[in-house]
Simulated assay, not measured.
Amino acid sequence: MKDIGIIDIEASGLHFDSYPIEVAVRVRVRGECKSWIIKPEPSWEYWCTTAESMHCVSREELLRDGLPAVEVVKQLNAFLAEPDVILYSDAYRWDGDWIDTLYFAVKIDKPFYVDSIYDLIGNDKADQFDKHFSRLAESGKYRHHRAADDVEMIYQAYCQIMG
């Protein structure tokens, strides 16, 4: 089976001025997941308290504990290791925009593409995927709206319906 990657990004809000605060990627064959907390760039100012209440990461925590955006990009590129990878997301338009914001900020070319997990699984299995994902989110085993756990739930739901 061709290796697939899954990506999830948490952000400062759902606004055109929002920016990525956490990114996680899982590569299926390696079975490895990596995540990074991102220190906001100086020009990244927008903050939504509603988003904070969902992901439970404060801006102060990002400033204190986050890695600089350039370091996140370098580590993410090294983790992926091969060019032209497709990373699948359950919210690819948002995640694609936020990953573009991250790479644009550090002026490094992005060596991968973000696409929809729904395009990968097909319309006929979308409802099954959503049901599996919802069960996982409600199980108490994962922290929904944290990138690494969301990646794992996407992966587990994908495996459930694709075998």
Rank of each mutant, 00 (worst) to 15 (best):
G140R: 11
M162S: 14
W36T: 12
L80Q: 13
F129A: 12
M153E: 11
S134N: 05
V25S: 11
E71P: 04
D130L: 01
L62N: 12
Y46Q: 00
D149C: 01
G163P: 06
F112Y: 01
I4K: 01
K141P: 08
S12I: 09
A157V: 06
Y155S: 12
D90I: 08
E10V: 03
V72W: 02
K131W: 07
R26V: 15
I7V: 09
I38C: 10
Y92L: 00
D84H: 00
W36I: 08
I117V: 10
W36V: 08
G13T: 08
R93F: 08
S116G: 03
V57W: 10
R26W: 10
D119A: 09
A69I: 14
K131I: 14
V106N: 07
V106Y: 05
V114D: 12
Y88M: 11
V114M: 00
I108F: 01
A11Y: 00
L102H: 10
L76V: 12
H55N: 11
E82P: 02
N77F: 00
D109N: 09
I108Y: 05
H132F: 08
L87K: 06
A91S: 08
E138C: 11
Y103M: 06
I37Q: 15
P68I: 05
I6W: 07
I38E: 14
E138S: 11
G13C: 02
H145V: 00
G96S: 02
E152T: 04
P111W: 02
P68C: 06
K2Y: 02
L63C: 07
D95R: 00
A105M: 01
H145E: 04
